[in-house]
Amino acid sequence: MWSWVAHRVTGVLIFFFLFVHVLDTSLVRVSPEAYDNVVATYKNPVVNLMEYGLVAAILFHALNGLRVIAVDFWSKGPRYQRQMLWAVVGVWVVLMAGAFYPILQHTLRELFGS
């Protein structure tokens, strides 16, 4: 049940990111200076944490989507759905741990110095 909720929530979060991304990228056609100003506002620690959250949402949504496909189309899928969920969570945690420093390095350097 909670994986179903998390899958829907991550899908909605990804949709809203894509909506904002299309809007701010479309500013290039209106005014390149406005686009540069908007992009400059994104260079702060809060947005950097949101980028990490976006990666977390995309990875979970993708991995859980593969699990849902396996449950739907594999004859033994329903029997092993719980084990597959724990495999998804395990792979997600490993990938998120690996993404921690590459994504948050600018914020970490700002907070703790070079």
Rank of each mutant, 00 (worst) to 15 (best):
W74I: 04
L63T: 04
V20Q: 11
S31M: 08
L85V: 02
R109F: 15
A87H: 03
R67Y: 02
A56C: 08
V5T: 07
T107W: 12
H61Q: 06
V28S: 11
V47F: 11
L108K: 07
G11M: 02
V68G: 00
S26N: 08
R8F: 15
T107C: 10
A56N: 06
W74H: 10
A62V: 12
E33H: 09
M96L: 12
T41L: 14
Q105P: 05
V91W: 00
S3E: 15
V39F: 12
L23V: 12
V38N: 05
L54M: 02
T10Q: 00
Y80V: 07
D24T: 11
S3C: 10
F60L: 12
V71E: 00
L54N: 02
R82E: 07
R82G: 05
A57H: 07
Y42V: 05
N44I: 05
K43Y: 10
A57D: 14
W92V: 00
L54C: 01
L59V: 07
T41R: 11
P32L: 12
P78D: 02
A56H: 05
F73Q: 08
F19T: 09
S26K: 01
G98E: 05
V9I: 09
A70W: 04
Q105K: 15
V22Y: 04
V12F: 12
W92D: 04
V30R: 03
T25F: 14
A87L: 03
R82M: 06
L66R: 05
